[in-house]
Design a protein around this nucleic acid. Structure first.
Length: 229
DNA sequence: GCCAACGTTGGC
DNA sequence: GCCAACGTTGGC
């Protein structure tokens, strides 16, 4: 069936419940992560949180979610920025991420950092607004819920695989920044060494949670005050 | 709805 | 540990 929205933020009503279950896995460590770009070829143990001394530190992010209705396993996975805005305190948990690289990036997130809210798999893909991290990575309880679209029978409560963060709506961008426009800059910058020459959105297809350099983040913010290209 | 890209699984 | 088959992502 159709794919899904891998990252669906939800109201955090029962977050305390999720919290007690198992302390956030600080799993191992045996594994070190490679410096900036982690490939997916690693063994399970290597996919866990890496030691701070080794990894590149990112401060800005881009998180994808689907703003249009799509039914997966009988459940509508729609979650656009307006849906986040409508939650109590305009805050929700970013559950449902089931990709190791994306998960690891969420584990690197710190309270107060900003992320772009990106609308994917929809009529007009692009950046709709800015959100901020308000709670650092903790166990994603939906992995144990058989009724949940993102239930993962291979994950055990004693050693949870998946994490999520809480995010809060900050503001809409002054204008919607479409993927098509970002792509034009990316292509142009690839030749000139500009800000978006290596943007993960284009170099790491399908990654639903991705890091941005400060330069990338600032450049995209500057587009708010420019005319659409 | 198509399909390219690419992550995951499992046989060997 | 290789790699073909399979499943998912997500633009178009």
């Amino acid at each position: 069936m159709a794919p899904k929205k891998r990252a669906r933020a939800a109201a955090i009503a029962n977050q305390s419940k999720a919290l007690e279950g198992s302390s956030d896995a600080k799993d191992g460590d045996g594994g070190r992560e490679r410096k900036r770009v982690a490939y997916a070829k690693k063994s399970e143990s290597q996919k866990n949180t890496s030691s701070a001394s080794e990894k590149a530190t990112y401060t800005h992010w881009l998180m994808k979610s689907e703003p249009e209705s799509r039914i997966e396993n009988g459940v509508d996975v729609k979650f656009g920025i307006e849906d986040l805005k409508a939650l109590p305190n305009q805050t929700g948990c970013w559950d449902g991420v089931r990709n190791y690289q994306a998960r690891n990036f969420m584990r690197d997130m710190k309270v107060g950092q900003q992320a772009f809210f990106y609308h994917s798999n929809c009529k007009e893909p692009g950046i709709a607004g800015i959100i901020k991290i308000v709670k650092e990575a903790y166990v994603d309880h939906t992995q144990f819920d058989k009724k949940d679209v993102h239930y993962d029978p291979s994950s055990k409560p004693e050693n949870p695989k998946w994490s999520m963060v809480d995010v809060q709506f900050e503001r809409m961008t002054k204008r919607f920044i479409p993927l098509t426009e970002l792509k034009k800059y990316h292509l142009k910058h690839k030749g000139s060494g500009g800000a978006l020459s290596c943007m993960a959105l284009f170099t790491r297809a399908r990654l639903s949670v991705q890091p941005l350099t400060a330069e990338e983040f600032d450049f995209i913010l500057s587009l708010e005050d420019t005319d659409p290209v």
